[in-house]
Amino acid sequence: MSLLIQSALPDSSISHFVHSFWMLENNTGKDIPSTILPNGMVDLALMNMGSQNWEISIRGLDTVPSAINIPVATKMFSIGFKLLAVEYLLGDSIKDVLNGGKNLSDEIWQFEETDLNTFENFCSKATQIIKGIFIENIDNRKTKLFDLIYSSKGSLSVQELSDNVFWSSRQINRYFNQQFGISLKAYCNILRFGSSFKPISEGNLFPDQNFTDQNHFIKEIKKYSGVTPKELSKNVEDRFMDITAIKKFNK
């Protein structure tokens, strides 16, 4: 018995909106205490905790580590959305679910039982649903803004981003606060933190994502994870699922 984790990247046709697909299944025979780390994604999840009913929920951005419990026999599929999806796919602000979540109806996200038999089936159906959503013309400034944010892993300053997309920093921050509940700078800091997961999981405890120095690196890691980079790397008892997943995929 084990904890099964799988992930997959989206095809290029939906990569502006989707960061990745995930599946988690707790077959360990016991509940698993875990910690959600801020990673810059908005997660739509389908969860079954050993019953016949699947629940659909949306989780907003996380800005602090959150302790959770993964009950025995839980099976979960999720779509990790990039922020552009919030306005153009989900169609609503997520500022009310900052560091939290809420249940959704299955009006749009209609998955059949066969779609949830395998991870491959889930990814295929999720991609089909996303491609079928009618999307109005996307603001080119927003497309370029998010492309720059993600390609730089949050390392560009607010002013640099503003200058590149010809959109005032004041207007960008208003958009971020209204749509996501945080400022652009706060989001970039979270992305930079998330980009440190892979090197930390490999035992690299020195900054390589434009942190000012070692002290700044340690301070930021503790701010968003609650522990030092060394403790995060050790990941005792697989407490941090993001680190556990990366270590599994790097084997």
Rank of each mutant, 00 (worst) to 15 (best):
I58N: 05
S169Q: 14
E25L: 04
S151Y: 08
Q209E: 11
V64W: 04
G50W: 12
F119L: 02
L104H: 02
I190Y: 07
F240H: 05
F122N: 00
I68V: 13
K95N: 13
V42R: 02
F211N: 11
L148S: 10
D62P: 01
S20L: 10
N39T: 08
L90W: 13
G132V: 04
G154A: 10
Q110N: 13
N215A: 13
W54P: 00
K142Q: 15
A73G: 04
D96Q: 09
K75G: 03
K142P: 10
R59H: 03
S105L: 07
L84W: 08
I5S: 06
N173E: 14
K30D: 08
Y187L: 06
G100V: 00
L148P: 09
S196C: 10
Q171S: 15
A73C: 11
L44P: 02
N39S: 15
K198H: 02
T114L: 08
L205Q: 07
P10D: 12
N69D: 08
F146D: 12
G60L: 01
K142N: 07
F206N: 14
P229H: 07
V72W: 05
I135W: 02
K248R: 07
I5K: 12
V86T: 11
D238Q: 09
A85C: 05
L205T: 09
E231I: 04
G154L: 06
I246M: 09
A186E: 15
T228W: 02
I218D: 09
T143G: 10
A126C: 01
D242T: 01
Q128I: 05
L98K: 04
D106I: 00
F166H: 13
L61I: 04
F134K: 10
Q171H: 14
N250E: 11
Q52T: 10
I218E: 10
H19M: 11
D96N: 13
E107A: 05
F77V: 00
N140H: 07
D92A: 15
D238M: 02
Q6A: 06
V227R: 08
L161V: 09
I135V: 14
I243P: 02
G40N: 11
E136L: 12
K251D: 06
I58V: 15
S66D: 06
F119I: 01
D11N: 13
F134T: 12
S168H: 07
P10Q: 13
N164C: 12
I79M: 09
Y224F: 15
E25R: 01
K219M: 14
F193L: 13
N140C: 04
